[in-house]
Structure formats: structure tokens, C-alpha cells
């Protein structure tokens, strides 16, 4: 049993009671990892900052208003952040006058991909960050969660709504792709 799990459970109880100190504690504890998670999904620091703040506000609303039992606070926070990013790209797509709802599902990821592949040019990224930006969002996401935010496979499965086996396969493929891109960039 991890100590962080126990801390999270106690924090959750206080949050349920709408304790502002507990919220401040949650913010201090998870701000940087959540910011980093979002940062690799959006094109600018400004977007990352706005979405991170929104994620914390959303989790406060969810915990204080929802009657559902929360099993893993950290996983919930990442899930909220992830959904916010998806909504962010959908809104961008809408702004581009795309009306067809069926296309909308795929558009979010495609738009995100196009924006991110151009970002290294805009802000002059290099090295492994550039490799990550060039990767498919699905792969980049598992790499960030596993190796940067150091989440367990089971937590990742909860956040991404996938089985543990699928997460392992995804991670394996993601590392393979990262290696390939890194080699290509090196040439």
C-alpha cells in the first residue's frame, strides 16, 4: 500500500467536506505533473496553463457535487485534464466551422497532431521533446504518464479506460516509435 494512496484518500475526505486547505494541498501536490501532462498535448504554454487551472476547478466541482465514490484521486485528476484537452481541440475544430458531428470525434486528434508537429518549428524544440511532439498523441500520452509522471500501469489503465495489457502493448509500441523517430532526427 503506497503512502501517496493514503494521503490521497485523506485528502479526498477533506475535499468532500469542501475544505479550502485540502484544495490548496491538492494543487501543490499535482500542479506540476498535470501541467506537464497537458503541456505535451497542446501547442503553447498559455494553453497548458489555462487548461491546468481549469482542470483543478473542474475537480473541485466534481468532488464537492458528485455523490459517486472516487477510487483514485490522481487518476480522476488526469482523466479530467485529458477530457479538457479533448474538449479544447473540439472547440478549435468548431471554430474552424466544422459542423458534422461524426467527423468531430476524429478531427480533435488530427488537429492536435497537425498543431503539435509544427510546434518545434515555432518554439525551436530539439532532442527528445521534439521526438515526443512528432509522435501520435496515443503514444506520447502513455510515455508521458509512465516515464515522466511515473504512474503505475493500473492507474494508466484507469485514466485511459483501457486494460492493463493494452497499456503494456501501447507502451512497447510507443517506445519503438520514439526510437525510430529519434534515429530519423539524428540523420
Amino acid at each position: 500500500m503506497k503512502t501517496s494512496n493514503i494521503t490521497d484518500k485523506l485528502l479526498l475526505l477533506k475535499l468532500k467536506k469542501k475544505d479550502p486547505d485540502a484544495f490548496a494541498q491538492l494543487y501543490d501536490l499535482y500542479l506540476t505533473p498535470i501541467y506537464r501532462f497537458i503541456y505535451f498535448k497542446v501547442s503553447t504554454r498559455q494553453d497548458a496553463e489555462d487548461l491546468t487551472s481549469e482542470a483543478f476547478l473542474k475537480i473541485w466541482q466534481y468532488i464537492t457535487e458528485s455523490e459517486e465514490e472516487i477510487e483514485n484521486l490522481r487518476a480522476l485528476l488526469y482523466r479530467i485534464a485529458r477530457n479538457l484537452v479533448i474538449d479544447f481541440y473540439r472547440q478549435k475544430a468548431r471554430a474552424a466551422f466544422v459542423r458534422d458531428e461524426e467527423v468531430l470525434e476524429n478531427i480533435a486528434d488530427e488537429k492536435q497532431q497537425n498543431l503539435l508537429s509544427q510546434i518545434d518549428v515555432e518554439i525551436g524544440l530539439n532532442g527528445i521533446q521534439k521526438v515526443l511532439r512528432q509522435m501520435k498523441d496515443e503514444y506520447r500520452e502513455v510515455i508521458v504518464l509512465r516515464f515522466i509522471d511515473e504512474l503505475s500501469i493500473s492507474e494508466m489503465a484507469k485514466i485511459l479506460n483501457k486494460s492493463k495489457g493494452s497499456i503494456r502493448v501501447l507502451l512497447h509500441r510507443a517506445l519503438k516509435v520514439a526510437k525510430k523517430i529519434s534515429n530519423q532526427n539524428g540523420k
Binding site: K17, K18, D19, A22, F23, T32, E49, W60, I148
Partner: peptide
């Protein structure tokens, strides 16, 4: 290499706490 700007961290913290202030109350377990 990747971490949020310290001034934004402070600013955002204060802003968020202000935002939830109306709906929150100190609690003990």
C-alpha cells in the same frame, strides 16, 4: 526541463482559491 512558471503557479493558486472561497469552509475529520 518542463515545469510551470513560478509566477503563474502563485497567481493561479490565489485565483483558484478565491474562486472556490464562496463554496468552501474549513473542515476537520
Amino acid at each position: 526541463e518542463v515545469s510551470p512558471r513560478p509566477e503563474w503557479v502563485k497567481q493561479s493558486r490565489a485565483l483558484l482559491l478565491k474562486e472556490i472561497a464562496a463554496d468552501s469552509r474549513p473542515a476537520t475529520l
